[in-house]
Amino acid sequence: MIYQPDFSDIVLNIDLLARGAWLTLALWGLALGFGLAAGLVLGVVRSAGNRWLSLPAAAYVEVFRNTPVLVQLVWFYFAFPVLTGWQMSGFAAAALGLSLNTSAYCAEIFRGGIGSIARGQWEAGRALGMGYPALMRRIVLPQAVRRMVPAFTNRGIELGKMTAIASVISVHELMYEARQLSATTFRPLEVFTVIAVLYFVVIYPGTWLSYRLEARLARRG
């Protein structure tokens, strides 16, 4: 007997998937925004050469890079409230866990990018009278960011897909809603085909924009 796909139940429940997609986007945006900002600070601190600052930053990075993100989310959702007495919603725990995880990876991208800038560039800035913060802001980071764009693109794509893990702690994002819908309609093939398309639709525009940015930066030398 040939399987007959039927998308009617999905069409009827499209609002659930749309709400899930919106939550996925929110989670992705939050984690990426915070991850980039915190990663920049950590990356600069790790590059500065001050051991009192760089060692704690390195420890933070290694903890978050060397433990599974699933464990981190579960820890923030279940263990963190026990230790602090501060109860978090699933969304808050997921946003925090993904943000901290992303910041650790972004810190390494920033550190690598900063380290790739030739020593002569630093010295040329110093010879013109610039201090470390101004050097970073005006000389090093503008050049380093160009080299980091591909790595950040990969990180962003990974993070977009990683939001699906939040369903484990009952965050009603796209994956959670898909599993619910699949369980009630008994149409897993149709449901997961549609959410695969939805993930692509959500993630690809960011990828496309990053390619455009890369090309534009390459043209500018």
Binding site: A124, I139, R146
Partner: peptide, 18 residues
């Protein structure tokens, strides 16, 4: 360095590429 009144031209120029 910046207060010595010195201009420095580096071996590989070290122009700011951006």
């Amino acid at each position: 360095a910046s207060e010595r009144g010195v201009g420095f031209v580096f071996q590989h120029y070290a122009l700011f590429r951006h």
